[in-house]
Write a protein that binds this DNA or RNA. Structure first.
Lengths: 248, 248
DNA sequence: CGGTATTTTGCGTGTTTTTGAAAGAATCAA
DNA sequence: TTGATTCTTTCAAAAACACGCAAAATACCG
């Protein structure tokens, strides 16, 4: 393999994952550590990446440090990590959009092997960084507010698929009223997503608990998993302890 | 074997595999290393390939490399600005993906009112920033390399729409060979996109001119506009001056 | 046809680039 | 702190390279 091709390979890895480990590259490219180190140094000299102990980072990663703008990011990371346990190799998963789902994708283990359907372009792009995940983006009208596809076309396509698990963020959840929403289109969409999956998991930060909005998506009996940043035994979750709903 | 034959042979190898090793050529062509080196140098001087230690690479191969810094960004901005003149209020536009298209979107006037179909999630997200643009994302399998949707589902949907203008980036364009590509799926996709539009514009940085790859998309007669960073009267564009093709 | 210029090619020589190994310093994680 | 990993520096061998030269082939011209 030519040096230029190695550089190319490394840059592709960087652009894909925003980071790269020296040791991984040694294995993948089958050359000595020294060669990789020299390659990385040359790429640094060209100003294409950023070297750290153990590997290298994307230059743009440095600037994307303003992830702090994501509201309640710490909580969402906890939720995301818990949710990754639901994904097993070989699964077919359907996901919505939103920052929590996006965080969930980032927390997935590197080696996971699965098929993901999603209505969120941003989630699709993030999922594409995993080698063993097949990504199918469901197309349709693109919503400027929620950055997901919606509308009749999306719902038609959802009716044609059957996933093992549906992962969605939530606007509001309530023990009696179940999942609720304010937007008619989003409401329809969520119903269609639930109908397209055998099981469903709702990712929900604790402050959205015990709230009911105008439009009902489904009862909490229709949900299989509720994932919050709280401990499963937490007082605030007592209203949700029914047999069909796993809290984690 | 004549020199010209060797050159042709080398170029065929390059277009086929995107790369070639000096040592391989020595064996295949049964000449000395020096001869091969001289051949490669001459092809470089003609601007047909890219020489590296150990062999040579295709000029278009170069493209996947600099995604982070966006290769030849200045040129792409010039192209993008020119291309925005093609968009009129009320138009239905179909776009592909790639950094040039993305730059084009960023250069659009704030007030533009139009409908955009796209196979690129990133383009969709960028388009969504415009209030008066309706965005329809065409869904399907998501390609990790090119960050666009592809496959049979995309092509089926493309067959159902009719746009006024199709905007696409390009891997290679040649006066006789027309638009060409190396990837079968992308090739099919581009054909479908062209078929779905009344007119078509190709955005192309000058270094992709006069290159022919393995798979043909269409003849240059099928293209309505060719947008490069060069002046329309530039020498390098002389081979493309046919009646049906507007150069800008 | 003969003689001269030009091109092409291969070879020898010396230089540069690339790569891996070794040794010791620096860094990290527990 | 201690042990393990990772880094840096230095060195050596192999591969690839550039340059000049000369033989062979080809083209050109009177």
């Amino acid at each position: 393999m030519l040096k230029k091709e190695r550089h190319d390979f490394i840059m592709r890895q960087i652009n894909l994952h925003n980071r790269v480990l020296t040791s991984d590259l040694v294995q993948l490219l089958n050359v000595s550590e020294d060669t990789i180190r020299r390659d990385l140094q040359e790429l640094v000299d060209m100003g294409l990446l950023f070297k750290v102990h153990g590997g290298a980072l994307s230059k743009s990663y440095h600037s994307s440090f303003d992830d702090s703008t994501v509201y309640a990011r710490d909580s969402k990371i906890i939720i995301a990590k818990k949710a990754t346990n639901l994904i097993k190799d070989g699964m077919v998963v359907l996901t919505g959009g939103g920052t929590t789902i996006l965080e969930f994708v980032k927390q997935l283990p590197e080696s996971i092997q699965a098929t993901f359907f999603t209505i969120s372009p941003l989630v699709a792009v993030e999922l594409a960084k995993y080698n063993n995940i097949e990504v199918i983006l469901i197309g349709g009208l693109f919503s400027k507010n929620s950055q997901i596809t919606y509308g009749g076309h999306v719902i038609t396509q959802l009716s044609e698929i059957k996933a093992d698990l549906c992962l969605m963020g939530t606007s509001a959840i309530h023990p009696e009223e179940g999942l609720t929403d304010t937007d008619w289109e989003i409401n329809q969409l969520k119903k269609a997503m639930l109908a397209a999956s055998k099981k469903s998991a709702v990712l929900c930060i604790s402050e959205k608990l015990d709230i009911a909005l105008r439009l009902k998506v489904c009862a909490i009996e229709s949900i299989s998993y509720l994932v919050t940043e709280l401990d499963a035994t937490d007082e605030a979750l007592s209203g949700y302890t029914i047999k069909s709903l796993n809290i984690l």
